[in-house]
Structure formats: C-alpha cells, structure tokens
C-alpha cells in the first residue's frame, strides 16, 4: 500500500515543492495508521529533501530566496530541522499507538 503513496509522492515532488511537503506529512500519517515502520520513510524523505535543494540550485531559485534577504544556510537548517522534528513527532505517535 505504501508503495502507491511513494509513487504519488514522486510525481508530486516533480511538480511542486509545497505539495511535496504536504504529501510527506500524509505518508507519515498513513504509515503510522497502518502500523508500518516509518524509519526507512524518514531516511528516504531526507534524501528527497537534499535532492529538492539540488534542484533549487540548478533552477536558479536560490536567487529568489537571496532576493528576499533570506540566508540560504538558515533555510537549509530550518528545513532540515523541520524534517527532523516531524520525524520525531511521527516516531513518537507510532510508538504511542
């Protein structure tokens, strides 16, 4: 079942970063509900985030953040922190259920 979600995420990830993050949350939620281990999902999602930023650099979109005076290093840190926080929340939810 989770594989279907993965394919959906990959399609969404190709199209829009915002939808990608929403799908990220949805898969965590579904995995928790189905009682599957989400550790591999967490790891793959972290790699996916790295690739997302790789795509940003390729697509000149770092300049977008810089034009808004946003530190690119801080942006990285914020997103990876968000990623780690979400991982812990969902791991906690999975253990408690």
């Amino acid at each position: 079942m989770i594989k279907i979600y993965w394919i959906s995420i990959l399609i969404l990830y190709k199209s829009n970063f915002g939808i990608f993050l929403s799908a990220y949350l949805a898969v965590f939620w579904l995995a928790s509900n189905e009682g599957e281990s989400i550790i591999p999902i967490v790891k793959i999602m972290q790699y996916a985030l790295i690739f997302t930023f790789y795509r940003f650099t390729k697509r000149n979109e770092f300049v977008f953040f810089k034009n808004l005076s946003v530190s690119v290093n801080l942006l990285f840190m914020a997103l990876f922190s968000l990623d780690i926080i979400l991982s812990f929340i969902f791991l906690g939810l999975q253990h408690s259920s």
Binding site: N60, V63, S71
Partner: peptide
C-alpha cells in the same frame, strides 16, 4: 560579507528566471 542578507540593500536579476514556477 553577504550584501544580499542586508534587508533593502541589494536585488539581483540573473540571466535565467529566478521565481519558482509555482
């Protein structure tokens, strides 16, 4: 060190489009 970090100081239009498509 990083002029872009100073609010209201500098903007830059690169050769390629820089707005996210979405």
């Amino acid at each position: 060190k990083s002029p872009y970090l100073i609010q209201g100081l500098m903007k830059y239009l690169p050769q390629d489009s820089f707005f996210p498509s979405s």
